[in-house]
Amino acid sequence: MKDVLLITLKGIFRDRIFQGIMALAGLIVFIPSAASLSMRQVTELSITLSLSTISFIMLLLSVFLGATSMWKDIERRYTFSVVSLPISRTSYVFGKFFGIALFLVLTAFVLGCAAMISIKVSSMGYPPARPVEWGLIMAAIVFDAFKYILLVGVAMLLSAVSTSFFLPVFGTVSIFLVGTITQQVYDYLHTPASEKVVSAIVKNAALVLYYLLPNLQSFDLKVYAIYSIKPSLGGVLTTFCYGGIYTAVLLLASSLLFGRREMK
């Protein structure tokens, strides 16, 4: 597994998509000056901008890397030479996944450091109303990375069964979009107002989806970081466990499906 992981990492670093996306990351440097244009809540704004930029970059990375990594191997016939080596299909899938996950963690770390420097610069020029909670900013970035690692798991699962990159790429994006609103839909379905508009069948279908699809919204701690409000520890821990279990299930399913796949 370690060998596949290292090869995957090397592949990412030498990939053009990666180099393009990383050029985007250079934008973080300009955040303090951009935020200062607003004249009000400059620090809050630069926290928002930094965290959103990081989140967006990680979304791009997780979709492209997660969805194309295995597909590319199959499409370019690398699988014949790799899967026939004395590594199990499970190690192959896990190696790919952890290679990408590790890369996301590294990205989060590097971008996180850059962002914190940007925020520091902003806060020195325009002191915020409430002191910046660095711990919360870090937590927000960590949980964001975690969310995208889970998304990579989704992409791996779709790649394990798909023959084209269409399903993994668009499937992952759709699940991401649905995953971010599923909590709102759930909450809405539990309001009395919804009873009149939504039929029982639709409601039950939506509930099934709610439990089946990943709930990504709870990973979003940005608001807490921006306004320096402490989130509830229990909630954060629950999210952490939820993410871990969900990702593990995705990985197991991917390796099971990929293990039975014919390399024709």
Binding site: I7, K10, G11, D15, R77, Y78, F80, S81, V82, S84
Partner: peptide
Amino acid sequence: PENPAFYDYL
């Protein structure tokens, strides 16, 4: 393998 292909970035 037949007509082999290997990780071409290596």
